[in-house]
């Protein structure tokens, strides 16, 4: 019984922690791209990377205030969306997928390369406190919770984690509200029509390219926000955190919750991290495998999850089966 509680406690802790916030944001961005507009962006991790680095470089290297860093992160992801979108938005879905994943990898290679090291810290990345106050200092100073642990029973958070969690989920709620407003509007209707058949939308006088670009920027900025959240909650970033599989985790989160639904990415992220953390804890406790293989086991588990979801419940938890039957 205790064992079960430990496992569940780990799951719940992870499900409401900052990592789940990061993936909820990244997946909401993908939902705008893939769920609503049909853009198969496989480089969401690239947006997370530029968001995180935009913040970190501005605050830690150039010693600007945190809010400037946040704006820089948003601008960086907007810029990436523009650069990426101009050539690729005219391409077919699968070409777009390949070029976005390639672009994200280019970014990672470049950010970890030696010429970029003065700005990016090379392969070691940027810990919060390189120079000046660092990107977590203002953040921590804003924390209204005095030092200590908060919570009840097995569910306790340190004051920093509590702060990040509360701010993070508030941002998620705000973003959900905005996406909800957008998607119930005629603007959202045009996006959905592009997802269904962009030629049809074009024939009705919609500037498909402009809408796709707007969607790419919106979802990309959400990815950038996810990256910033990641940087702040870890107080450090390194380029090799931004591997392609992060994008695929975000897809798993999205599809699990239900693509093209408002709450899908949020519910998906909660569930995903609950599963990941409890499976991991269960593996550790049951001692069936050497500790070194638990990491890859967890990742392989995500892969199998993605296959099964797509094959058997592509509409996810919240999606509409009726709509899904029509897909393809």
């Amino acid at each position: 019984m205790d064992v079960l509680i430990t496992i569940l406690a780990d799951g719940v802790n992870s499900a409401i922690g900052p990592t789940a916030v990061v993936f909820a944001l990244a997946a909401i961005g993908l939902n705008v791209h893939y769920g609503y507009t049909g853009l198969l962006n496989f480089g969401q991790v690239g947006f997370m990377l530029v968001g995180a680095y935009g913040l970190a470089i501005t605050v830690s290297i150039w010693e600007q205030p945190l809010w400037v860093g946040v704006i820089a992160g948003i601008l960086a992801s907007t810029l990436l969306a523009l650069l990426l979108g101009l050539p690729t938005l005219r391409l077919r879905a699968d070409y777009l997928a390949i070029s976005t994943i390639a672009a994200a990898e280019i970014l990672r290679f470049v950010f970890r390369s030696s010429p970029a090291t003065p700005f990016t810290g090379g392969p070691f990345g940027i810990p919060s406190q390189v120079g000046g106050s660092g990107y977590t200092q203002t953040w921590n100073a804003l924390n209204p919770f005095p030092q200590g642990r908060y919570g009840i029973g097995w569910l306790t958070f340190s004051h920093t984690r509590l702060w990040a969690t509360i701010v993070g989920w508030s941002i998620v709620l705000l973003v959900v509200l905005v996406v909800w407003l957008l998607m119930r509007s005629p603007w959202g209707r045009v996006l959905k029509s592009i997802r269904e058949d962009e030629d049809a939308a074009r024939a009705l006088g919609k500037n498909v390219f402009a809408y796709k670009m707007q969607a790419l920027i919106l979802g990309g900025v959400l990815g950038g926000m996810a990256g910033m959240m990641l940087a702040i909650s870890q107080a450090a970033i390194a380029p090799d955190q931004f591997l392609p599989q992060l994008t695929f985790f975000a897809y798993t989160v999205l599809i699990m919750g239900g693509a093209a639904t408002i709450w899908g990415p949020v519910v998906g992220s909660l569930l995903f991290w609950f599963l990941i953390a409890s499976v991991e804890r269960a593996l550790i406790i049951s001692d069936v495998m050497p500790s070194g293989t638990i990491g890859p086991t967890r990742l392989a588990f995500v892969g199998i999850l993605l296959v099964l979801l797509m094959a058997f419940r592509p509409q996810g938890l919240l999606g509409n089966k009726r709509e899904m039957v029509l897909d393809g």
Partner: peptide
């Protein structure tokens, strides 16, 4: 097809990390 494409992603994660194990 897009659905199948996402399935190849899942398959690739499962195989890759299965092999790492």
């Amino acid at each position: 097809l897009i659905q199948m494409l996402v399935i190849t992603i899942g398959l690739s994660l499962a195989l890759r990390f299965g092999m790492q194990i």
